[in-house]
């Protein structure tokens, strides 16, 4: 335990409450690590785990926080993003939580991080071996909105009975001419389990396939953990005549000029003038530092 973390335990919470390194007690961490190992052994399978109450609300990343708390050690470097950005309020809050309870180094640079906790995005900078990407997952069950009952969906997964999902995608095509799912787009992992990639935009789905980093998914409220080991096949569901495709933006980032990234739309004035900028703030900043510029700077 680092000096900072010990200070946290001693000074700030003396009288009636004390907390362990990374908040969770060691038994809970061990239980969660077991679930993670099982998840890695069965890629894409949702492992039930005894989710703990965390000091931030359910739905605000408690699953991801528990996964991170269970794997983090004093030598790790942590990055936390929400919507791709390091400076969104909840990302700041979670980063501060770990800085306070573990004293580990934090960073905003994707390349410097050993653990990256994310909500709704996968960084644009390709991940490397040895890194762990921890996703915060609200609803882990990809079949949930087709079948609300846990007892039913469990059987459907056991039998690999995924017809309803294909029917849903087919109905989209029949009604709209294309698949109308833009985020939380279902994938099949290593040819077996259909998995919810968490509400990342489908733009990010291809990054999950054959990724050198370990990908862990934590759903606290729903009490599920699942995983994609490094170098695992992840295929977005589609049809031969309607192949999967990602969103394309018809303009580059206005700040760094990148044209192969996911963009946020920012409203500039009361007249509704729009501007499109990178959702991944670290990627955008590094490009600007490297001398790239978008239309705003030209």
């Amino acid at each position: 335990m680092s000096t900072d973390a010990r200070a946290f335990c001693r000074d700030e919470a003396q009288a009636i409450a004390t907390y362990n390194f990374a908040y969770l007690d060691e038994q809970s961490k061990r239980m969660i690590r077991r679930a993670i190992l099982k998840g890695i052994a069965v890629p894409g399978y949702q492992v039930p785990f005894a989710s703990r109450e965390m000091p931030m609300p359910y739905g605000w990343g408690t699953g991801g926080v528990q996964v991170t708390a269970s794997i983090i050690g004093p030598d790790d470097t942590l990055k936390v993003i929400d919507q791709g950005a390091d400076d969104t309020t909840n990302a700041i809050s979670i980063r501060k939580f770990f800085a306070r309870t573990t004293g580990v180094a934090t960073t905003t640079a994707t390349t410097d991080a050993s653990i990256i906790q994310t909500r709704h995005r996968i960084p644009e900078t390709p991940l490397t071996e040895g890194q762990v990407l921890v996703y915060q997952v609200p609803i882990p069950e990809p079949l949930r909105f087709l079948e609300p009952r846990e007892t039913e969906t469990r059987t459907m997964h056991a039998l690999a009975e995924y017809g309803v999902m294909h029917v849903k995608l087919y109905e989209d095509i029949a009604r709209h001419g294309h698949i109308a799912t833009t985020y939380a787009y279902p994938v099949k992992v290593e040819g077996r389990y259909v998995m919810d990639p968490s509400p990342t935009p489908k733009f990010d789905n291809p990054k999950m396939d054959q990724c050198p980093a370990l990908q862990l998914f934590g759903a606290g409220r729903e009490m599920r953990i699942y995983a994609i080991p490094p170098w695992t096949q992840v295929v977005s569901l589609d049809f031969e005549d309607h192949p999967f495709e990602v969103q394309a933006f018809d303009r580059p980032c206005a700040l760094c000029g990148a044209d192969d990234v996911f963009l946020d739309e920012v409203i500039m004035d009361d007249q509704g003038t729009r501007m499109f900028v990178c959702s991944d703030t670290d990627h955008c900043n590094s490009r600007q530092t490297a001398g790239h510029a978008g239309e705003q700077d030209t």
Binding site: Y58, G59, D82, Q83, H120, T200
Partner: peptide, 19 residues
Amino acid sequence: QATGFVEHLKLPHYVDFQS
């Protein structure tokens, strides 16, 4: 659990909304 998930709608959803 309920209050957390209902209130999480306050968190940014720019990326999904953009999609």
